[in-house]
């Protein structure tokens, strides 16, 4: 390896924490101001600080998918993101889907196809399907399977989740 070093430069840096620090989160289009420690995950900020408990906490270590939300349109695990690192970015949760009391077509399709049993993984599954359909309005069965492959369902609703995603795509394409 070459020996030329990067000369470390000391510059004034903005340190936050370890105590609570103010942050702004944009969730489902609304800006929220809250006070959190840097160790607060996005998941706990949503659930505990904002009362948005639709996003579920099931493993808290990025191994189940129940906390899937969209960050700038991309599906991520909210339990593996620090809340303060999500400042200024668009966060979508399951609570943001239904508008004016009308279910989003994905939600309607999940009910119609019975794509859930206990329902605990459901918000995460729906957000993964949302991410897929936002990007690919005409997915194949294989696309759907891959899109929800990061969302475990212990009840085994998978076959119906696949059907619901395809049905939702159909509903969205037909504009209903």
């Amino acid at each position: 390896m070459a020996t030329k070093a990067v000369r470390p430069k000391k510059r004034k840096i903005a340190v936050r924490g370890p105590g609570k620090t103010p942050i702004k989160l944009i969730v489902n289009g609304e800006t929220h101001e809250l006070l959190v420690e840097p160790r607060r995950t996005l998941l706990d900020a949503l659930r505990k600080d904002l009362g948005l408990t639709g996003t579920k906490r099931a493993c808290d270590e990025g191994t189940c998918g129940a906390c899937t939300v969209l960050l700038d349109g991309k599906p991520i695990y909210a339990c593996m993101a620090l809340a303060l690192e999500c400042e200024g970015r668009s966060i979508e949760t399951v609570e943001g889907l239904a508008r004016n009391g009308k279910l989003h077509p994905i939600q309607a399709a999940f009910i119609e196809e019975d794509a859930l049993q206990c329902g605990f993984c459901t918000p995460g599954q729906i957000m993964s399907v949302k991410a897929l359909l936002d990007e690919n309005p005409n997915p194949t069965l294989e696309d759907v399977k891959r899109a929800v492959s990061g969302n475990l369902c212990r009840c085994g609703a998978y076959p119906k989740i696949f059907k619901a995603a395809l049905r939702a795509a159909e509903l969205l394409r037909s504009g209903s």
């Binding site: 659930r47 505990k48 009362g51 948005l52 408990t53 639709g54 996003t55 579920k56 906490r57 949760t93 399951v94 609570e95 889907l97 239904a98 279910l103 939600q107 999940f110 009910i111 119609e112 019975d114 859930l116 329902g119 605990f120 459901t122 918000p123 729906i126």
Partner: peptide, 21 residues
């Protein structure tokens, strides 16, 4: 018959024990 509590479960409104605050 689709689940009568489907809407709560798909919107995140259903309050599980884990969600009680």
């Amino acid at each position: 018959i689709p689940r009568t509590d489907g809407p709560e479960r798909v919107t995140g409104k259903a309050v599980y024990t884990f969600d009680v605050q």
